[in-house]
Computed example of a mutant assay.
Amino acid sequence: MIKRLYEWTMSLAARPRAEIWLAIVAFVESSFFLIPADVLFVPMALARPRRAYRLALIATVFSTLGGIAGYALGYYAFDILAKPVLAFYGKLGAFDALQACVQGDQQLLLILLTTSGLAHLPPIKVVTILAGAVHIGLVFFVLSCIIARGARFFALAFLLRRYGEAIRHFIERRLKVIAVVAAAALILLYFGLKLVAGSGQLLSC
């Protein structure tokens, strides 16, 4: 199922209204869609490199709007809508664990918003719903989405414009691994600093 969904998403890049599809996928990936917008963004930017930054802007704007929708699900309709979505994807346990970690800890939530926006770690849909469920400030949330997700899409646009098809394999295979490792290192560093500071919170999550 996931492979078919992935292939279908990639096929959207060749359609006449591919930019609209990019906006839709960027929007829904933030709250319930399984496939990240990068899958559509990369072939579109390669096909029309002069539009790479325009595509990055579209993806950033609609990913942020989708993030706001996910935030609203967590804030206003967690039990009715968000919880069933998380359960469907098998992410409810991960959500509960993260929620226990971030209660009263906005610094950790900011790190998670950053790492999810840059590297999908933890998954974007989990963190956006979590942000609404714990009622963090909407302005704070929106700014973090714009910065983290914008950094991801515009960095991809720069690489694809500069190096073209030659960089595609690196982006699809290795860049994600590097981003995930960097995100994991940032999270571990945060907990390590808390331990050194004597908070005793390292193992609480």
Rank of each mutant, 00 (worst) to 15 (best):
E29D: 13
L73D: 02
V126Q: 04
R51G: 09
L12C: 09
R4T: 15
R51I: 02
I124G: 09
V28E: 09
Y89M: 12
P84M: 09
V102E: 04
I2V: 14
T9V: 15
H120G: 15
H135S: 12
Q103P: 03
L46N: 06
L86N: 05
S30L: 04
D79Y: 13
L55C: 08
L112G: 05
V102M: 06
G90Y: 02
L98H: 05
F32K: 06
S30R: 03
W8G: 06
A94W: 11
A131N: 01
Y53W: 15
F140M: 13
T115L: 01
A52V: 05
G117K: 03
L34R: 05
L81E: 03
G74R: 06
A45G: 00
L12H: 04
L40G: 06
F27Y: 14
L22A: 11
L113M: 13
T9I: 13
F141E: 00
P123Q: 05
S30V: 02
R51P: 01
I68K: 01
L109E: 05
S63H: 01
I111C: 13
H135A: 14
I58K: 08
L12P: 01
L81G: 01
I136M: 12
V134P: 02
I24R: 00
S11G: 12
G74N: 04
Y89Q: 10
G70A: 08
F78S: 02
Y6I: 10
T114S: 13
Q107P: 11
A52N: 00
Q107Y: 15
L34H: 11
F33W: 12
R4V: 10
G132P: 00
R4F: 10
D38E: 15
K83R: 14
L46M: 09
A37L: 05
A119M: 10
L34P: 05
V39F: 07
C145Y: 00
P36H: 10
Y6D: 11
G74L: 02
R51A: 12
C145S: 11
K83S: 07
V28P: 10
I58M: 14
I129T: 06
D96P: 01
L98R: 02
F33P: 04
P36D: 12
T9W: 11
I58T: 12
D105W: 04
G93P: 00
V134C: 00
A72Q: 09
P122E: 04
Q107G: 15
Q99A: 15
A13T: 04
Q106R: 14
R54V: 12
R54E: 08
Y53D: 01
I35C: 11
K83T: 06
V42P: 06
